[in-house]
């Protein structure tokens, strides 16, 4: 404990008070409201066909979005960490666009691109692929807003990887693909998994980007966050509380998983004596 530097009591006091008022009080109120619903009704709300379908659609599209970002994000992180080329700084800055751009603006832009007479929607429609107002549109909106997660978790680990191990494997005659699969990928795997989980969690709760492009048809293109919003507008507070706490619980589970992954990573680094 540092007893030399002053201000511990004051700064901790401000932090705890603020977090209690701004974060814990509302979350507590949400849980309180959900507890008031009663267990049987709670389960009945979640099992209702519209809610259950919304959860299924949300998880499926979030999985698709995460799969895309696992591939694209890894390639992007690799290119940024390993190569020098003109425009690299710009590419690096562009990665953060989905974090800085408001989700409503992203949704608006994506819907303009993917509607039938849009830049992408037109060519895709002639191939028989519809994006706007379909689950694919939801997945694209989710993918866009969660692009930075895999890149920003994997990139620093790739940059810190020592060349020695790769070189040793290369001198032993291993091919690039083999070295990547047996040496590099295991090293970045925890970070990769963390990024993918964070992106998946973000996709599950995404709202603004989705509603512009999804069409929002119950049972077809309605995601959980939108259903929560609709229940609030209908003053169906028990349903909103039940759905929101389930979403909150999912977020906590994802957070727990990420922390477990990081613990595992720290232990691995500790074990290798680095």
């Amino acid at each position: 404990m540092n007893r030399v530097v002053p201000g511990f009591g004051l700064s901790l006091g401000i932090t705890l008070t603020y977090l209690s008022l701004i974060v814990l009080l509302p979350l507590g109120a949400l849980v309180w409201q959900a507890l008031g619903v009663g267990w049987e009704r709670y389960l009945a709300i979640l099992a209702g066909p519209r809610t259950a379908t919304a959860f299924r659609i949300t998880f499926a599209t979030a999985a698709l979005a995460t799969a895309f970002n696992c591939v694209y994000g890894l390639a992007l992180a690799w290119v940024l960490a390993r190569y020098e080329f003109p425009g690299k700084r710009l590419l690096d800055a562009l990665v953060d666009v989905p974090f800085a751009l408001p989700t409503a603006v992203a949704g608006l832009a994506l819907s303009a691109l993917f509607v039938k007479n849009g830049w992408f929607g037109g060519p895709l429609a002639s191939l028989g692929i519809e994006v706007a107002y379909t689950p694919l549109g939801i997945a694209i909106a989710m993918a866009f807003t969660s692009i930075p997660f895999v890149v920003r978790t994997v990139q620093p680990v790739l940059e810190d990887l020592h060349a020695d191990v790769e070189e040793a494997a290369a001198t032993l005659g291993a091919s690039d693909a083999r070295i990547f699969a047996t040496v590099i990928f295991p090293a970045i795997f925890p970070a990769f998994l963390t990024g993918a989980s964070l992106g998946f969690a973000r996709s599950l709760g995404e709202f603004g980007a989705i509603i512009f492009i999804a069409g929002n048809l119950p049972g077809k293109t309605e995601v959980v966050s939108l259903l929560t919003f609709i229940r609030i507008e209908e003053y169906d507070y028990p349903a909103a509380a039940a759905i929101a706490t389930t979403l909150l619980l999912t977020a906590f589970v994802m957070l727990f998983l990420v922390n477990m992954i990081q613990l595992w990573q720290q232990r691995r680094i500790g074990a290798s004596g680095d």
């Binding site: 974060v23 509302p26 109120a29 709760g205 977020a251």
Partner: peptide
């Protein structure tokens, strides 16, 4: 706890404040 709002969907935040 400080990072918690980052992992919570803004829709949940809105609903929580309403409650």
């Amino acid at each position: 706890l400080v990072e918690l709002p980052f992992s919570i969907s803004p829709i949940i935040a809105g609903v929580a404040y309403l409650f």
